[in-house]
Design a binder for these strands. Structure first.
Lengths: 230, 230
DNA sequence: CCAAAAGTGTTTCCCGTACACCCATGC
DNA sequence: GCATGGGTGTACGGGAAACACTTTTGG
């Protein structure tokens, strides 16, 4: 019994980056199609012979020349029958983080422009991409508190104040510097870097590194990362 | 530019039920197709003009004559190119809970048999359904601790001991009866029922109800449900 | 020596944990 | 009156929260 079905499968990626105390999202302006000149998430249709993961990575590469630090499936949007006016589409959305070191995308073949937008200065978006983005934003906030993904948004070597600021900014909360430091320290998953302190104004700050191996090891042993503040 | 793509979209549902101190999963034995006589999750292909949610609910109705208490999207499985030997399929899996009152499915049109299996006495499953089921099981365990979904597995009026047992069984942990009672009580989301106590052996136990409205209200106010035990 | 940002310790309080005895019923 | 399961209180300890001064540098 052959199955008749005319639904197209797409993938979309919500890529977050963090720079200058601001959370940013990567958007592209489409060159072709119905939604020409509209800003949209990175994404496209899945090929018959590639996995969903391969599809997202390909789109990231093609549309923004980007390699991400963290990637996970977010949600599948398929309850809007008229999402794309051309035909029925369901979209598997992925959630991605890039290290602020590689936060300079270059527009590539498919898109004529790829650009970072501050999360609270978004342009109008194509399709239901705003809803997708909001869901991703929620997920980011939630995960930040129970998984060490903040490090995937920072350079390999970072200052404690940067980490702290990242948490404050994304969670929109005040955090006590001393308690935060104490807590993070107690996990034993970050270590001082030998990188010489930067000299600007005030007392120079030390650089730190996230010890991913150590974290994985602790994780296996049942350790639970958790940051919660009033 | 027309898109050529030959991928079929299916939905699958992992339905959990709880009865006699055991966690159960609903499986169906397929009447037709390549996988004839194999046990599989409830599921099927999405129609062009129905949403994903409608598709799951339809399948639940058609294959098991079932209305569920809780339903949420779990994950989309599309990284196995050879999942279904007939053609490329991606499957959007849903996670469902049924109240033990309606835990008597009747086989309907599509399937010749629908049956509950204890979670640790599963038959061999079709496709990658075992992997899906395991992911759902994980999710259930996790959610139980931070969302009041346990109540969706119990009758509307239940005993404290039933609730406690549900937690013990699913989380595979010993729980101190007094501390558990105290914690749940402190939330203020369950209330005594007027239903007269059942008389069996020992002191009769009171019935309780989950006050969903109260929970929603508290939730809006920032209340966080959380059950954690050593 | 002043300004600017980084670093650090102590006390308090609440919540999670451990733990055991009495109560209501049926037989 | 005894067996069975249901219901409840208290004491302790650890971790989260609140809180402010000292240190290092540049100008």
């Amino acid at each position: 019994m052959p199955i008749k079905q005319n639904i197209k499968v797409a993938v979309d990626a919500i890529v977050f980056g963090y720079a200058h105390d601001t959370l940013n999202v990567l958007l592209i302006k489409q060159k072709f199609g119905e939604m020409k000149n509209q800003w949209a998430l990175v994404g496209g249709f899945v090929k018959d012979n590639e996995t969903l993961l391969q599809a997202v990575n390909r789109e990231l590469e093609e549309e923004a020349g980007l390699k991400v630090n963290y990637l996970e499936q977010l949600y599948t949007f398929g309850d809007e029958l008229q999402r794309d006016p051309r035909f029925r589409v369901i979209s598997v959305a992925y959630f991605a983080l890039v290290n602020s070191q590689n936060l300079k995308p270059v527009a590539d073949t498919d898109a004529d422009e790829a650009k970072w937008f501050a999360i609270n200065e978004l342009p109008p978006l194509a399709f239901d991409h705003l809803a997708i983005l909001q869901k991703a934003h929620q997920r980011l906030k939630a995960k930040l508190t129970y998984q060490p993904i903040g490090f995937d948004l920072l350079p390999d070597e970072f200052l404690f104040s940067e980490l702290e600021n990242l948490y404050c900014t994304i969670l929109e909360k005040e955090i006590d510097r001393r308690n935060f430091h104490k807590k993070i320290d107690s996990f034993g998953i970050i270590e001082e870097s030998e990188k010489p302190a930067l000299k600007k104004v005030g007392r120079p700050a030390k650089f730190y590194r996230f010890n991913k191996q150590k974290y994985s090891q602790l994780y296996e042993e049942g350790f639970v990362f958790e940051i919660k503040f009033a």
